[in-house]
């Protein structure tokens, strides 16, 4: 059968691509603006707030420009003993959590990435529990779990400092595991195989060949776990409580200051956390594994 004689094809008129890009760019930039505006609002709020007088009135009068920077809620917050305690506790607990997360995430990620075994999909799903579970439920579940622990242990942990780290760890580690697994998935297995033929056992191949290659991923996983731990609030509130000067971390401080109506202090502490988050982003973007989707 012959193809039908072509009628003179009308020239195809293709409409402009401009509306497509205009629409997409408008949607994208609206979201970006929202994010940046939030941060800008926090920052500008600091300076229009009735500033607490950190410095003496005489000094402020003598140095009106410096006074703007000294007499503001961030400096006031930083000079508060409770908030200093919460900053230190946050830094220490987040660092411990990040290290613990890496110690767990590296083996788990490696086994999941390299080995097929019975129940692998089930384990994979279990590891997502802390990510998908509502944070309050994570805290409640920890609380309930420790109801079954011996009283001596329970009293050492629940509403005490170990609870802070444990609540942070449960959630942060899940993110570190995801990152480490993706890292190992991206590393070619042939190099380990070569190492095995050179005389390495599995442990030597891992520590001499695989782990050095995974170091950007390790950094990303550790930093991500640290940031998650810093932002953690729900499980902490339930499992560790919000006791001033005891289990108070930065997110707890924001909550406590808000609950007593001190918006300025809450915003000040939030800004401290925003700066920490910015530092984390810079670390990951500069030295981390930028191929990983987080």
């Amino acid at each position: 059968m012959k193809t039908p004689p072509s009628k003179t094809n009308p020239p195809l008129h293709i409409r402009s691509d401009v509306p497509f890009y205009v629409a997409f760019i408008i949607i994208s930039s609206t979201y970006l603006l929202l994010l940046l505006a939030m941060l800008l609002a926090d920052a500008s709020y600091m300076f229009q707030e009735d500033s607490p007088a950190v410095a003496s009135p005489e000094w402020s009068a003598a140095h009106p420009w410096l006074a703007v920077f000294v007499n503001n809620p961030i400096v006031a917050a930083l000079s508060d003993d409770n908030i200093q305690y919460s900053i230190v506790l946050s830094l220490v607990s987040c660092t411990i959590t990040a290290i613990l997360s890496l110690i767990v995430a590296i083996p788990v990620g490696y086994l999941l990435s390299r080995h097929q075994f019975f129940g692998r999909n089930f384990i994979d799903a279990v590891l997502d529990i802390p990510i998908v579970l509502p944070p309050l439920v994570v805290g409640l579940s920890l609380l309930i779990l420790f109801q079954y622990a011996p009283v001596a242990i329970r009293e050492q942990v629940v509403y005490q400092l170990p609870a802070v780290v444990l609540a942070q760890f449960v959630v942060a580690c899940a993110f570190a595991v995801r990152t480490m697994r993706a890292t190992f998935d991206l590393i070619d297995t042939r190099r380990e195989k070569v190492a095995l033929t050179l005389g390495c056992n599995q442990a030597q191949a891992f520590f001499r060949v695989v782990l050095p290659e995974a170091r950007a991923g390790v950094l990303t996983a550790g930093t991500l776990a640290w940031a998650r731990a810093l932002g953690e609030f729900g499980p902490l509130l339930v499992f560790a409580g919000a006791t001033r000067g005891k289990t108070e971390v930065l997110s707890t401080t924001v909550f406590l200051e808000l609950s007593i109506g001190d918006l300025g202090a809450a915003v000040a502490v939030s800004l401290i956390m925003i700066m920490a988050a910015a530092a984390v982003l810079i670390v990951i973007r500069t030295w981390g594994a930028n191929k990983l989707t987080l």
Binding site: K193, V194, L196, P212, E213
Partner: peptide, 21 residues
């Protein structure tokens, strides 16, 4: 025998060198 016990030198495709060494 395990790979390291076979006394065999292996050069894979593309070399597979260790990037951090």
């Amino acid at each position: 025998l395990r790979p390291g016990e076979r006394n065999i030198g292996y050069v894979p495709q593309d070399g597979a060198l260790f990037p951090m060494m």
